[in-house]
Structures are given as structure tokens and as C-alpha cells.
């Protein structure tokens, strides 16, 4: 089995602020961590590898600072990592990111399974997985909460829909995006932390991958961020429920049912 886990580095929780003058996000000095759902994807990959053998590769696209998240993936137990890093990839939206990643997956070659976290906790799109599946022309199972390999080529995933569950069986290769319910990601271990520095990390730019330059980075991104703003921060405005308990409950239900 060759399994690639696509990860994103996200700012550590709520450390992102907005510059009130420029309306840009202040990303300097923000500590980056692996997107939490992506850790579930890594865990799923490692579990399958432990069961069926093979190789787990961590793939990400971003600046050099993303190296720390690749290293975290290796310290969890992945075998090697690839970072797609270039100014030419900058400003990519999900379409350009999905294209670039799918081309990198083609270069890695013979990939049986591509795993993603269901979405990133910063941009919250969850779009790159299905886009990659489309570009690779392979099936997808999204929002998976249970996963099991029947044999080297067949996987059954249970996805959690809104209020229902669905069993989906696919023949590999395929793209799977996973929910947090799927598993509990293992910890990095002290020994694996040290050996993560000895594992192979390839850094590829636009010259290393077969790419249509018009489809990467800002040029390949149809969407534009027009404005970023902080909504009025509402601390909890406490509303006191008056009258007797009966009236208070009536008032409460009237309000929260709206």
C-alpha cells in the first residue's frame, strides 16, 4: 500500500488577529500546528500500514515553516514527506491547491489511497480532497467516521451524513476525507521525534512537477478575498428571565426556538 496523507498547517487556536488598519490577518509569529482533522487522517494511514504493510507519505503545500508540521507527521510514524513550496504556489485558492496537489500525487506515482482531514479549522473549506479526487479521476468517500480495509484493493468507509450514516465500498485508488470520530491520533513518541529528523523530506517547486503555470498560485485561483473583517465580538449578553418559572420557560423557549 502506498498511502499519501495531505495535511495543512494551521495557526494554533485563536491566535490569529486582524490588523485593524489594513484588514489583513496578522500571521507573523503565529505558531503553526497540524490541522487537527489531518492528524486523524495520519492515524488512519498508519493503522492501515501497520495492518497491511506499505508506506505512508505526508504531503503538504506551503512555505518552509510548514516543515514543522511535516516533521510532526513523521514523528507520529509516517515514512517520508513531500513539501510543495514555492512563491509560484502562493495565493492559491482551493482549485489551484487541488490542482497542484493532484499533479504532485501523479509525480509520487502509484498511490493507492489519498487521505485528507474533513476540512481545515482555519479556512474550513473541506474542498481540496474532492477536487483532488476529481483531478485524479478516482472515487471519493468524504466525512468518514469508520474505515476498514477488506483487502489490499478494497475499502469500506462509513460516512456520517446529516442525521444518517452511509456505507460506501470503493475499489482503490481513492480519496478519503476523515472525521475526528474515526480514531484518536497517536502521540508522537520521543524516539520517533528524534528519528523524524533522519527521514527523507523532499521539497518540490513548480519545476519539479509537471504543471500548467496558469493553473497554480494566484493566477490559477478564481476566487478573490475582497474584505476581511472582525464581526462585532459579542461577549455573552445575559438576558434575565423574569416572572415565575412557567413564564420564564415560556420566554426562554420562545427565544431559543427562533
Amino acid at each position: 500500500m502506498k498511502i499519501v496523507v495531505c495535511i495543512k498547517q494551521v495557526p494554533k487556536s485563536d491566535s490569529v488577529k486582524i490588523d485593524p488598519k489594513t484588514n489583513n490577518m496578522i500571521r507573523d509569529n503565529v505558531e503553526g500546528v497540524i490541522n487537527p482533522f489531518d492528524k486523524n487522517a495520519i492515524e488512519a494511514a498508519l493503522t492501515i500500514r501497520d495492518q497491511l504493510g506499505g508506506e505512508v507519505i505526508i504531503l503538504s503545500m506551503g512555505p518552509d515553516s510548514y516543515m514543522s508540521s511535516l516533521r510532526d507527521g513523521l514523528a507520529m510514524g509516517a515514512d517520508r514527506a513531500v513539501l510543495l513550496s514555492s512563491r509560484a504556489f502562493g495565493g492559491a485558492d482551493t482549485l489551484a491547491t487541488g490542482y497542484t496537489i493532484s499533479q504532485a500525487l501523479k509525480k509520487i506515482g502509484d498511490v493507492d489511497l489519498v487521505l485528507f482531514g474533513r476540512q481545515s479549522v482555519d479556512a474550513d473549506t473541506g474542498q481540496v480532497g474532492p477536487i483532488v479526487a476529481q483531478y485524479l479521476d478516482v472515487p471519493q468517500i468524504t466525512f468518514v467516521e469508520q474505515l476498514r480495509m477488506i483487502d489490499q484493493h478494497t475499502l469500506i468507509g462509513q460516512r456520517l451524513l446529516d442525521g444518517s450514516t452511509q456505507q460506501v465500498q470503493v475499489t482503490l485508488p481513492a480519496v478519503v476525507t476523515v472525521r475526528a470520530e474515526l480514531n484518536t491520533p497517536r502521540y508522537e513518541t520521543p524516539v520517533n521525534i528524534q528519528s523524524s529528523f533522519e527521514k527523507n523530506v523532499d521539497v518540490w517547486d513548480e519545476h519539479d512537477i509537471d504543471l500548467d503555470k496558469s493553473r497554480i498560485g494566484q493566477a490559477g485561483s478564481p476566487t478573490v478575498v475582497k474584505r476581511v473583517f472582525a464581526p462585532d465580538k459579542k461577549g455573552r449578553q445575559t438576558k434575565t428571565l423574569n416572572g415565575n418559572a412557567k413564564k420564564a420557560v415560556q420566554e426562554l423557549l420562545g427565544q431559543i426556538n427562533n
Partner: peptide, 14 residues
């Protein structure tokens, strides 16, 4: 230094 930072974060999580 990086490895020590990773270890300490791991210990904190654990």
C-alpha cells in the same frame, strides 16, 4: 532545539 520543543509539546499533550 526543535526536537526538544517537539518532546515538550508531546509531553504537554500527553
Amino acid at each position: 532545539i526543535m526536537a526538544a520543543g517537539m518532546l515538550h509539546r508531546m509531553i504537554r499533550e500527553f
